[in-house]
Design a protein around this nucleic acid. Structure first.
Lengths: 251, 251
DNA sequence: CGCAGATTTGAATGCAATCAACACTGGTGG
DNA sequence: CCACCAGTGTTGATTGCATTCAAATCTGCG
């Protein structure tokens, strides 16, 4: 696409799509011409609220977003953490209303893409649709891992697994620095993501530190002993599909 | 499609697609000509095993299938229950290897569809792809509900929610008879699906019976007091998308 | 009839929740 | 600049839900 300047947001989208599947120049062109509506969100504000019917999906270009459901009792379940390049509510293209909310974990930059434009793009470039379909499937794989994590692991193992997953995903985006990552996860949020109370999270984190598996100060977490953490968590990164692009047809 | 006889399996597939989206005659025709390889499985046998790389996906035409992951410790997490008409491993089209296994809960009839044929069909009839994409997204919505169920609800509430979901989904397929459903869920399996031990499941079921919310004998479960069960579980069926077909473009 | 799997019951243990209080932090407004 | 305050992290004590261990009964099935 010589001579055509591409916005940073489009670049972020293209980078994502490149990971998800093998695209042709035509596919990239279609993606690069998707209309984007830019917005910013402060930390701890909802981007999309449960119950709403969306007419656009959003690309997270900067910052972190989390997905959560609220119960009538007031308790909260965090369902996923999303990183730059993700399109967390892509499913709203086919499902409504939203069965959960999406909120900014940190200050975020976001680019909304109209559903109509997406449908149009899929028609013109079917591989684009397949790449995004694949992304929603990886989300599903993460949900499954979280299910076994919460359903069948002890408190300390759950937290270890969460850290392993985040570290792995962040590293793939070059958002880690020597085994550590900056991601403001409060102990309350960790609890809501692992099905534990904040008090118990606190104690399990202490134990992880005591045993030299991690160290964390303020919001900066660092893996001190990856092998042991991995083993404790029973973490196998295959489900993240970080190494393999979309399987070629017939392969 | 006058004059062309359609197999029962294809009919099952078409019925499913009809629910998932608005199809044209052409779409139906493409779907009806998908090559199917039929097979049967005994109860408690794996259909697809974790770690394998699939070259076909399967349509469940009769019987029930469940999705599960095993931990090294030997404990099992049941991730989903699948009903006739579902294509539980459709995601294997874009993800590999399998991050979980699929096993027959009851004797099953299954129709395998080659991935190549599916890709070809999507090219010829894009709406078919969208309908199936939508199905995988609904699976994702169920995973999310199970996450909050296991992460944030008490034992008795989890079981109540599982029963509500199954009852609702089975009813949509006309597989219920006066508030009851026949689905051989052992207490062990219920435990693996809700993150509880079989012993505790047993006690919670007794409590549900004692309070007149359900009755269950052998493998036949019946809802005795839907309103109370629903309230106890905090069940909202919207996520199942049973009433609404695929949202029309731009609506 | 015998056996494996499933259900049920009882008792004891323990992991995680709950309740409560205090320290620390960063941001806000007087 | 300091007081205030809400959110977060930490610690201790207590409670209880769910697990674990163990054993008896029941069920279906070859």
């Amino acid at each position: 696409m010589p001579g055509v300047p591409i916005s940073p947001s489009h670049l972020r989208l293209l980078a994502k799509l490149e990971i998800m599947g093998q695209l042709s120049a035509h596919d990239r062109e279609v993606a690069a011409s998707l209309p984007l509506r830019h917005a910013r969100y402060n930390a701890n504000t909802d981007v999309v609220r449960a119950g709403s019917s969306q007419t656009e999906s959003f690309l997270l270009t900067e910052g972190f977003v989390y997905r959560y459901q609220l119960l009538e009792s007031g308790s909260r379940q965090v369902l996923a953490i999303h990183l730059p390049g993700d399109i967390p509510d892509l499913h709203s293209l086919f499902l409504r209303p939203m069965d959960h909310s999406l909120a900014a974990l940190t200050p975020c930059r976001i680019a909304f893409i109209p559903h109509d434009a997406l449908r149009e793009a899929f028609r013109k470039a079917p591989l684009l649709g397949e790449a995004l379909w694949r992304e929603t499937l990886i989300d599903g794989a993460m949900f499954r891992q979280w299910l076994t994590n919460i359903g069948r692991r002890s408190g300390i193992e759950r937290i270890a697994h969460l850290f392993c997953e985040l570290y792995y995903r962040l590293r793939a985006l070059n958002l880690t620095a020597d085994n550590g990552f900056e991601l403001p996860l409060s102990q309350t949020t960790i609890g809501d993501a692992t099905g534990l109370t904040p008090v118990h999270v606190n104690r399990m984190l202490q134990q992880l530190r005591r045993e030299g598996l991690i160290s964390s100060q303020n919001r900066y977490h660092r893996i001190e002993n990856w092998d042991e953490l991995r083993k404790l968590a029973g973490f196998d990164p295959a489900y993240l599909q970080l190494d393999s692009p979309i399987p070629a047809a017939g392969s």
